[in-house]
Amino acid sequence: MTNKHKLKLGAVAVAAAFLLAPVALAPTKDVSAARLDMVDVSNNNGYMSTAEYVSMRNEFGVKAVTVKISEGGTYKDPYAASNIANVQAAGMYINGYHFARYATKAQAIAEADFAGKTAKVAGLPVGAVLATDVESQEANNQSKATNDRNNAAFMKEIQKFGYRADIYTSGSWANNKMTIKGKTGWVAGYPYVMSGQKWYTNNNAWQWSGSAHFRISYGGFDVSQLYTDYYTAGQKSTVKPTNKDAVKANNQGANKNTSKPSTSAKWVKEAKTYTLKTAVKLRTGASTSSNAITILPAGTTVKTDQAIIQGGYRWVRQPRSHGYGYLATGPASNTLEYVKSGAAHTYYTVKSGDSWWAIAQRNGLSMTTLASQNGKTIYTTIYPGQRLVVR
């Protein structure tokens, strides 16, 4: 979700793919193209107006929007309330999600209480889905049984607030790092070739792209196809687009654009020293499916030479005596969450009234450079008291 805070994981369980029978397809017609039924948004998308949501509905066929509500036990998405109000004003179904940081049952219950209270204040209506987004390093460090226990505790607690529960995770984690039962779950898996594929048909929703574009909205968005009515208030959708021709054309365009690997992710130079806050797997490649070389314990010092954002994580490369090792520093949308830089860096503490532009100007940087070296974008909200790397 990255790019929710989410970081959306691109690793896919290929065994879940199903091909339509050839006789059901006309030679030049891709009837199996994935739909843009649901969009998820967070503070990473900035302020989203009602007009933008109306365009998504009428020109792209979007039926539902799931907005970030909270993260961990303290973070409240600053755009949750405006997103909820504007989605409702646009006449679409509204849901929410909480980015999970819990590692124990007690933490899961506490985070559910925090998410439920935050959702109430933000205006998420009773009966909406409030999903737990489980893709963090904390969850990755747990066993499947522990994650299942924690997720169950969160979902049971969230129902006390009148919300319906669900789990969001990646295809590589579903039924591997946690159980995703049939007719439940919102699963992310980004294919290279869309045509003819329908994945995760046994689940509520399949997030099939993290880079869809809409006509009057800036940047890429996470989009999902719905297989049940769970995210449309438990009923057959009553949301109807006003421009069906545009919906058809935009749907074809979105599927075409995701039909081959993204070339946007590139390795960049990053000569840094990190001290790990938690144990992290050092892998043979920059992917959660790559084999683990070893597990680096908390407190380990890691010197890196390059970094890349892909597969929902920010990865760094560690030169070794024989080749390289790769480790994830955290989600792509919050890249320094699990590591802290060495003393070589210069930090700036954000003050009230500061902006990316103002801080960048004072330190002789471009806004893009300042944001990227802190693992963020210029559209990420910054807060007083936050520390940013400026050198």
Rank of each mutant, 00 (worst) to 15 (best):
G323S: 13
G323Y: 11
G323R: 14
G323E: 11
G323H: 13
Y324F: 12
Y324G: 03
G325I: 09
G325V: 12
G325M: 13
G325E: 02
Y326H: 07
Y326P: 01
Y326E: 01
L327T: 01
L327V: 02
A328P: 08
A328I: 05
A328G: 10
T329F: 12
T329N: 03
T329D: 08
G330Q: 04
G330Y: 05
G330T: 00
P331K: 13
P331A: 15
P331R: 09
A332Y: 04
A332R: 04
A332M: 12
S333P: 02
S333T: 07
S333L: 04
N334F: 08
N334P: 02
N334Y: 08
N334A: 15
T335S: 15
T335E: 13
T335V: 12
T335H: 09
L336G: 00
Y338H: 12
V339K: 03
V339H: 02
V339W: 03
V339M: 03
K340I: 03
S341C: 10
S341F: 10
G342Q: 05
G342K: 02
G342W: 05
G342P: 00
A343I: 04
A344Y: 05
A344M: 00
H345A: 11
H345N: 09
T346A: 11
T346V: 06
T346N: 07
T346Y: 01
Y347I: 11
Y347V: 11
Y347T: 14
Y347G: 05
Y348T: 06
Y348L: 07
Y348M: 06
Y348G: 08
Y348S: 09
Y348E: 11
V350T: 10
K351Q: 15
S352Y: 10
S352T: 15
S352W: 03
S352P: 01
S352V: 15
S352M: 06
S352C: 06
G353S: 13
G353R: 07
G353Q: 10
G353A: 15
D354V: 05
D354W: 06
S355A: 14
S355W: 13
W356L: 00
W356H: 03
W357D: 11
W357P: 02
W357C: 00
W357Q: 15
A358M: 12
A358S: 15
A358F: 00
I359H: 04
I359C: 05
